[in-house]
Amino acid sequence: MYSLLKTLWLIFLHLFHRRETIEYPERKAYLAPRWRGRIILSRDPDGEERCVACYLCAVACPVDCIALQKGELPGGRWYPEYFRINFSRCIFCGYCEDACPTYAIQLTPDFEMSEYDRRNLVYEKEDLLISGVGKYPGYSFYRVAGLAIPGKDKGQAENEEPPFDPKTLLP
């Protein structure tokens, strides 16, 4: 009997607690920047696509909802000819972001993606690409990697010596 009354009392006290639920969508909850919602493709600090079409996100994806095709710009820079995410399959696990070696693919705190037509949940590169660096300012893969691209020759990446001339007679 005592425990019954105590339970009733505790529940009664809840009337005076702060409310945990909010009036969504009129009010919106705070979501941390690392929240795993809608996926975007970011650009590097120079405004170029960060994605180098390495296929690591596609292979990491447990539901296989990412498909892309590597292309190559004149000069050797890799980029995705198309990049498609089928959000009707995506489980927002964030493995793709983890796998991405260039910080191109990032999950954002946006989850409001409901559609009446499933086809509208297929996002192509134009839908995914944003014009900023996202969560990782300053990083540019091609400045680190040894592959030469227009504007960054051999020997100009991080920690690189100038190109060696194999025909020189000096040791």
Binding site: A58, D64, C65, L68, R84, S88, R89
Partner: peptide
């Protein structure tokens, strides 16, 4: 680990 199974054809059919 063949990837893209659910996205490869998604531009044509869901």
């Amino acid at each position: 680990r063949y990837s893209g199974r659910t996205a490869l054809h998604a531009d044509r059919t869901m």
